[in-house]
Design a protein around this nucleic acid. Structure first.
Lengths: 169, 169
DNA sequence: CACAATTTAATTGCGCACAATCTAAAATGC
DNA sequence: GCATTTTAGATTGTGCGCAATTAAATTGTG
């Protein structure tokens, strides 16, 4: 009997697929809310960062201490691990819908500053309400969410360590 | 003091993003292999199913007992949770590269049968080798993989229970 | 058998992802 | 001071995902 032993390959396949499927399932779970708000899932992720930036800038606009307050496209991209090829057209669409504002930094004409408009900020309470109503009441506990979130980040960091990684360039 | 309490929203945001980021990071981790094999990540997931089908059909081509052996586009779609809008063009591209074969079922002209060609099957040992070399030696243990995989599936199923779900249609 | 309802894919259109390339502004070096 | 290099985004092209529509084959029913 020939022992193929594809068990390793199978195990990896299962994780590949589980991540892939879970990510898309999450998008689908949010679909009703997103449709109501008139945005897409990646746009929602962008908005959540802009909401956070707005709160921070409101609390401490003096950017006291090491708070750099870089609200550029690049900073957004680092945060979401996305590049300009994805973000530029996405932000332009959101701008056309009046949700975000794009402007050039006066101190450096290369950088594009990004911020939520009042219309963009107005979506936050609606999103919050929907999440509370539709996900809190589900059978997914806060502990499970935290656990999964933690495991995913641990995994993410280990993947980074594994990846090629050019020598500091 | 106004207590906003966005903690719930923040927690959910973190999980949304962790899933989203981890899924894309997985794709990036496989990129060197995929480039070498000349395929994309979704195409790799498709191939893994076709490899499995080929093994099964080889072992028991008599489709004994309840083994239905449905190798249609629909069956593939159910397995990967993808619809024809995604799979049809993807499979056509793979067919052009000689990796899969598409044919109509003689007993029902509606269904498209899908199978890996010999060229498609030939990629399996190369993939297996790469996975063993590059992921086994990483600091991600088999236990962690199994744990994360299990958590993801549990989460997936609970998400399904949460989602709208039209009444059995 | 005719014909409506159902099923299975294919098609269309839009919005990401991401690699690769390009552009222009800013920083750097001599 | 000016050429060189670096940096931040924008652009281009390909390939997913997925909703919605369409088309064709099959099934069910009178």
């Amino acid at each position: 009997m020939i022992c193929d032993d594809d068990s390793e390959l199978a195990l990896n396949r299962q994780l590949c697929f589980a991540l892939y499927a879970a990510s898309r399932a999450m998008t689908k779970a949010y679909q009703p809310m997103l449709q109501d708000l008139g945005i897409t899932y990646p746009q929602y992720l962008v908005l959540m960062v802009l909401w956070e930036w707005a709160s921070e800038d409101e609390e401490g606009p003096a950017e006291s201490a090491g708070n750099s307050n870089d609200r550029s496209l690049g900073a957004l991209g680092q945060r979401l691990m996305l590049d300009s090829g994805t973000l530029t057209p996405l932000l332009k669409r959101m701008q056309q819908h009046g949700l975000v504002e794009r402007s050039r930094a006066p101190w450096d004409e290369r950088v594009t500053l990004v911020a939520a408009t009042s219309a963009g900020l107005a979506l936050k309470p609606r999103a919050k309400q929907w999440v509370q109503k539709n996900l809190q009441g589900s059978n997914i506990t806060r502990v499970e969410v935290k656990q999964l979130h933690g495991d995913l980040w641990q995994f993410l960091h280990k993947l980074d360590d594994t990846s090629p990684k050019e020598p500091t360039r």
